[in-house]
């Protein structure tokens, strides 16, 4: 379980990274961020990149910032950076809740938010956050920078809209106003495992009823997604357990669950039903 050989390129800026990608991506060059997904794949030789473009020492990419009402998360912000609220308010709280479900402390100390998005594991947590919030992925290639909306980013298991020669430079998440509520729930076999079902709900309450409901799921289908049809069941209604059960049933019915040796489609559907209902309840808590 030793990786095959590669050339290591330590780059000092995004421009250098993009230039190196332009040069090497066609022959198997890749970005190395936290390495917490890529290196295990290399150890099993499931990935055999010939060049690794190491972005870890690019200055200034390791801190999120608030910019024009958006939380900007540059490429080297580690998972551990979210343990404490990155910004005051509901978004910072929600991110701090979610990050506790991602792997374990030493992995969070290296793994990056953007790496997780680029890696696009169907059972990962951050991609669900990205789609739930309709965040934006900023990609830079030699031809320039483009912004990819979350809904268009994930294309399949570990496949994304990112081109081979593009670097994901940052993620932007709309900040939440005070009064925004979130509820997150996931089911995993052991603490820290990749999830077998994830649900993230969000809304505001005004005059006793739910407004602007959002509900995104992950871990169930090849890509995470928002469920607008189900969100409509929530909007305009007062939150209550009967409603949540109805919504959870609706969610369970509208998915085509993946199957693996540990989880049948039927079990996964039930897991999603339970996690959805619990996420909705937590959004009220």
């Amino acid at each position: 379980m030793k990786p095959s050989s590669f050339t290591h390129h330590e780059v000092g800026s995004i421009d250098e990274a993009v230039a190196a990608l332009a040069r090497f991506s066609a022959e198997g060059g890749r970005i190395l961020a936290g390495g917490q997904s890529l290196v295990p794949m290399m150890a099993f030789r499931l990935a055999q990149p010939t060049h690794l473009i190491d972005i870890n020492r690019i200055p200034g990419l390791d801190r999120p910032r608030l910019e024009a009402g958006e939380l900007v998360i540059p490429a080297c912000v580690r998972h551990a950076g979210f343990h404490q609220q990155v910004i005051p308010g509901p978004l910072g709280d929600m991110l701090a809740t979610v990050v506790r479900h991602i792997a374990h402390v030493p992995i969070r100390n290296r793994g990056t938010f953007c790496g997780s998005i680029a890696h696009a594991d169907p059972s990962a947590e951050w991609p669900v956050v990205l789609v739930a919030l309709d965040g934006v992925v900023v990609a830079r290639g030699v031809a320039g920078t483009r912004e990819i909306p979350a809904a268009a980013f994930f294309q399949g298991i570990m496949t994304t809209a990112l081109a081979e020669h593009e670097m994901l430079t940052e993620i932007r998440l709309p900040n939440a106003a005070a009064g925004q509520r979130y509820g997150f729930c996931e089911h995993a076999r052991r603490a820290g495992d990749y999830a077998q079902a994830i649900a993230l709900a969000g809304w505001r309450i005004s005059e006793g009823v739910i407004r602007q409901a959002r509900l995104a799921i992950g871990g169930v289908e090849p890509t995470p997604r928002r469920l607008p049809a189900v969100e409509a069941l929530l909007d305009g209604h007062a939150p209550n357990d009967a409603l949540f059960s109805e919504v959870a049933d609706a969610v369970a019915h509208c998915v085509t669950p993946m199957e693996d040796p540990q989880v049948s489609a039927s079990l996964r559907r039930d897991l999603l039903r339970a996690t959805t209902r619990r996420a909705l309840q937590r959004a009220c808590a």
Partner: peptide
Amino acid sequence: TPLRIHDALR
């Protein structure tokens, strides 16, 4: 496993 418990319940 959860799968076996699930199957037993079903």
